[in-house]
Nucleic acid binder design. Sequence first.
DNA 1: TGTACATCAGTGAACGCGCGTTCACTGATGTAC
DNA 2: TGTACATCAGTGAACGCGCGTTCACTGATGTAC
Lengths: 199, 199
Amino acid sequence: MKVSKEQSSANRQAILETAARLYRERGIGGVGVAEITREAGFTHGGFYGHFDSKEALAAEACELAFAAPLARLNATLEKHEGDATPYITNYLRTQHRDKPGEGCPMPTLAIDAGREPGLVSDAVTQGISGYLKAFASHRPDGSVTEAPEAADKARAVVVLSALIGGMVLARATSSAAPALSDEILAILQEELSTFWKNG
Amino acid sequence: MKVSKEQSSANRQAILETAARLYRERGIGGVGVAEITREAGFTHGGFYGHFDSKEALAAEACELAFAAPLARLNATLEKHEGDATPYITNYLRTQHRDKPGEGCPMPTLAIDAGREPGLVSDAVTQGISGYLKAFASHRPDGSVTEAPEAADKARAVVVLSALIGGMVLARATSSAAPALSDEILAILQEELSTFWKNG
DNA sequence: TGTACATCAGTGAACGCGCGTTCACTGATGTAC
DNA sequence: TGTACATCAGTGAACGCGCGTTCACTGATGTAC
């Protein structure tokens, strides 16, 4: 049965949001088109009316998955006058570790992006650039720059790498060594905040 | 046709090594039992004479994938009297980025380990602990300790997180933004070496 | 505003394919005599 | 040392299943009059 144009584009959006969540939880290869459409409330037959292929969906879902977290980073930096430590502390919470579907897409999707070139790789690279730009354009002293210098870029790369790597390690160890997992997060909260302020 | 015991256990080892390589390249979910056995020179029918299941192979392959890199880390630390900077610089080479199958298992397998509890998760957690212990027991001044203090653990966690996260980022961006990918590695080589020495 | 009909969003069965796993079979290995 | 035979490592066909994708169909939407 047909459905109104508004309803149809809302349905498309529902599929996209479901995909963005499931892909972050289990990776792009780990979730099928049928499961995504079912979870969004539909059958899989109508999927190709909305998207050209699974890869096209994955690319759009990656963009969507980056949008909110990146906006949140910029908002947090704005609010705290360039101080990234609240963002760092928040990123490294156990709640973020335990709910990958609603968090930062990088610790899961960046690995998928690295496997082969394509739309997903492009979208993720775009997202990573956005994150780096956001960090690099804010200095610990609160000033904002449009043209980050080497030291600004360096600070951004170190902090972002450690956030992502730390989250990957915390998630990998959370079931077999929960105390270690918590410790990794706690140490990084402290160390990266210090690093952000003192270089 | 039957085969001698020595040959059979060599065949088992060949399957294991092939798996350790392919899993690092494309993730555990991205490679099938048939492809692994074929690449190792056999048909897939004999697989279950060597391993109970794909998961059992994956767990053993993870252990194997950690063994050589971890031994190399300890050897390098030994050789350079606790100075981790040669290891850091070597880890962050473009060659390592471009050949995941022969390198550190963490940037690929730690994500698989984080998805669900099980044998793989246990093996990877073991490997991560080994890496952290190796880093933490060596101090920048060249001394070695069996009981790392908070500062030693902190240094280990930051360096390992940034190594892994940096490699994930470098691999994700290498096809869509190769210059950025190279820059990430170069920055981290410099910054993490400095961090190791100066805290 | 009301009616007749073309459009097309979503359904559900079907496609070929590769997955992990099983199994009857083969024939070289290795043991018993 | 030589022969007869049980063992069992590896083969290749087959299993049920879920994958991405296609398609004839349905029936509400939205347009033409």
